[in-house]
Amino acid sequence: MKTVITASSADVESKMDPRFGRCAFFCLYNDEDGQTTFIKNQFKDAQGGAGTKVSEMILSMGVNRVISGDFGPKAKEMLDKFKVQLVKIQDDQKTIKEIISSLA
């Protein structure tokens, strides 16, 4: 199962980014082999529709779960439709490593 966590930089020690569409990086975590891949968010400074574009990108990667601080209405609607589980982390000081270790 593939999980995407929004990250503030390309490092497992970095904090989770509380924004979904305009986060700096995505951390793609595959719990079958435990690998993490960091992907730069090219829509970070988009004029509009960042949430929708990012959702499309995430759907094309075949992700089952997205972890972030909050989701906009359009992104949520779209990800719900394709049965992607959304998780809102309330404590925004958590690092990517902590989140991944709690998933395992």
Binding site: R65, D80, K83, Q85, L86, V87, K88, I89, Q90
Partner: peptide, 27 residues
Amino acid sequence: GNWFKCTKCFNLFTIPSPGTKMACPIC
């Protein structure tokens, strides 16, 4: 729509398909 809250870690999450286990994905 369909936000669930864990009573232990207070994180919010969705349960997208009815077959999924009703448990917090984090803890």
